[in-house]
Amino acid sequence: MPPSPPPSERVLARRRAVGDQIRAARLHANLTQESVALTAGMNLGQYNRIEQGHSSALLDTLIRIADAIGVPLTHLVREE
């Protein structure tokens, strides 16, 4: 199987937007990155890379993050 192509600029921009929405929801809930990562069952570095938009997250991971913050999944991934 050939390697997948690098993500397009649209995908990278959307990944950053999702990270921004995760950060905004976390801050609104007065939670630390560490507490969300722990509750979501991830390490802090992995969580930080997702929130910064440097790494994409599996759907299961996004569901766990939304649950840890206490918001619906759609709140983290909706397009503005």
Rank of each mutant, 00 (worst) to 15 (best):
L73P: 00
L12S: 13
L38P: 00
E79G: 05
A68V: 10
L62V: 08
N48E: 08
I63E: 04
Q46S: 09
L31A: 14
R16G: 05
P3K: 15
H75S: 15
A37V: 08
V36L: 04
H75I: 02
A29C: 09
V36A: 01
P7W: 09
H75R: 15
A57T: 05
D67N: 13
I65L: 01
G70L: 05
A37K: 02
D20K: 13
A25C: 06
R16E: 14
L62Q: 09
V18I: 15
R15K: 07
L44T: 11
P7K: 04
R26W: 03
D60R: 01
I22Y: 02
R14I: 03
N30A: 10
M42F: 06
I65D: 01
Q46D: 03
R15M: 13
G70P: 07
I50N: 07
T32H: 05
D67V: 01
R10G: 11
V11M: 09
Q46R: 03
L38E: 10
Q33W: 00
G41L: 04
A40Y: 05
V11I: 12
H28P: 02
E79I: 06
E34M: 05
A37L: 04
A17F: 09
R49L: 13
R26F: 02
I69Q: 01
H28V: 05
I22G: 02
L59I: 07
L73S: 00
Q21D: 05
G70E: 08
L31H: 12
R26E: 11
